[in-house]
Amino acid sequence: MQAQGADDIIICRDVHKWFDNFHVLRGITLTVKRSEVVVIFGPSGSGKSTFIRTINRLEDHQRGDIIVDGIELTNDVRNIEAIRAEVGMVFQQFNLFPHLKVIDNITLAPIWVRKWPKAKAEKLAMELLERVGIPEQAHKYPGQLSGGQQQRVAIARALAMQPKIMLFDEPTSALDPEMIKEVLDVMKELARSGMTMLVVTHEMGFAREVADRMIFFDQGRIVEQGTPQEIFTAPKEERTKLFLSQIL
């Protein structure tokens, strides 16, 4: 049983979700601590994306509670906006704004949501581009960058809101193999810096290296969870073993 502590930044209790009659999430209970790096994996269609999208309310849930940094997710618009400002998200398809230069992609939310002055936002944006290793691309448009560079911009854009939690939904699945590493390196650095991260990925090398916990999802349920050590060397459930044998 997980006790609720001050250190728990995400608390999900018996979360259910339906798409019409389709029961996608069937009772997810999960607590994530500050600075924890959680990797979620599992077969296609098992509800991984849907689950992490409920945490910043890109999807709503119909039963159970989700509490993020002390704020309960309800239909209250102010709560939703407060949560979204605290939770950064990185998508499989990058979803950069193609009509804005890289730097403007990054400064947009600080300026309009945080109401920062432009100069301050740009200073932070340049620091973040430095951090993800592409300061020289600041004044290009997203369409002029490689996939790996675009995904690093997307990470910088999310970080510009100085979030407490970062969600990643298969951030490297749309990338050519030679670009996967540059994105994973940025994510590893972020994990080591103490960011709380929920990462949906099948990059098992990344999981082994930085995950504190791994969660195996199947058919809308958490089937098994444990440290990478436990999951890779001694999975308890048959389904976990089968899935790992397929992807490793």
Binding site: L58, M89, F91, L96, F97, A109, W112, M161
Partner: peptide, 23 residues
């Protein structure tokens, strides 16, 4: 406009009005 654009804007905390106007 692909759905991902709306989602990215939402995830950054932009309001609906800002999303329409800026994105």
């Amino acid at each position: 406009i692909p759905r991902g654009q709306y989602e990215a804007a939402k995830a950054l905390g932009l309001t609906g009005f800002q999303t329409t106007l800026l994105i």
